[in-house]
Design a protein around this nucleic acid. Sequence first.
DNA 1: TCATAGTTTAACCAAATGGTTAACGTTTGT
DNA 2: ACAAACGTTAACCATTTGGTTAAACTATGA
Lengths: 206, 206
Amino acid sequence: MKLKDSNTEERIMEAAKAVFMKYGLYGARMQDIADTAKINKALLHYYFRNKEKLFDQVFDGALSRYFEQMEVIHDDSLPILERILIYVVQIIDFLSEYPQMSMFIIKEISINEKLFKEKVHKIKRNKNANILTILEKSRKFNEIPDIDPVLFLIHLHSLCSYPFLAAPIFKVITENSNIPFHDPSNLKLKQSVKDYVIYTLTKKSI
Amino acid sequence: MKLKDSNTEERIMEAAKAVFMKYGLYGARMQDIADTAKINKALLHYYFRNKEKLFDQVFDGALSRYFEQMEVIHDDSLPILERILIYVVQIIDFLSEYPQMSMFIIKEISINEKLFKEKVHKIKRNKNANILTILEKSRKFNEIPDIDPVLFLIHLHSLCSYPFLAAPIFKVITENSNIPFHDPSNLKLKQSVKDYVIYTLTKKSI
DNA sequence: TCATAGTTTAACCAAATGGTTAACGTTTGT
DNA sequence: ACAAACGTTAACCATTTGGTTAAACTATGA
């Protein structure tokens, strides 16, 4: 029986997440990960063989969690409008918890597009609860106005994701400035995006 | 008189832009820049002394161009609504021409926040035509409805920027898929964002 | 208790990296 | 034409980097 008195492997993963998310595959340093995890560098290779393997575990985990949150819409018993409003809150809460994740995934995909193609396609296969599929079906049944579902989805993700993506800029700009904006728990953001959804999915249908 | 028969310096700058924008300061390799520019690696140091100096030139140029486009609103003789609609087109056209620039600036600031603070503050000083200043003034004079100018601006930038930020994901997802979305010259995007602006700045005022 | 397997460490290695140098080539003003 | 300044190159250097190894340490089961 193995005893996990010292959770070295987990600490490496946590450190690897932090360092890879900040610096990316190329920019990250194994020594940096080891220092962050407070373990000997050789243990990185003992547990994860090499940098690519370690990165893959971090990236795969991030990718599946990301698409699970961004692509899957729940509560299929509710009307489409309610479902999307819940989806908005779901996304914002998720991005609020992992604010660096969008940036990480987008950046790494842009650097090594070919390598990640199959990974992305392997993951996004939950057709039943896919947000775009649901939107297109609702459109077909005239449950929502005659809008472009793809463009609507892009806007929705824009409104939810960009504030977290651009947070580093906002932080630098607003510090030492008197720009009046505070949004604890993202309440204003959520309400404002919800307003947009309601307007787009109801107003235009009249 | 100096003759610039071989424009080595320019070619280095172009190569440096490409490589730094893709990999960032940490991830970029001087040899990669030299290869891209098709010159000897030593010339990088001959013209730009070292990696940090070269990066600074690239980053400073990007930063000033970025804030010039994202922060400055023109045509001060027009009504505020028209000005913002032109501003939307200005931003989208700019991001369309330099799709990697947002990502580059955000990422580098997030990695080295402290170093870039003064740079950002040095640049954003064009108070007269600052978009937020204009919005707040229009709000004060009741030219626009009672909305939060900062939140409105965040939404505006979200709608304009995110499609280019997330382009690497879209590309991977839509390839080999039958997702129906094509937007040459970003016409749909522009119109849709304009619609949002018009709705927000007129509808709510009633 | 003791041998075995699993875990951790310091020392080490080869390759890659940012940077330098000295020699060579080219342009330019006189 | 020619020397000085400018531009370019290959070879080189010190450090950093990802990765390995052999020895040491620790827990476990018999």
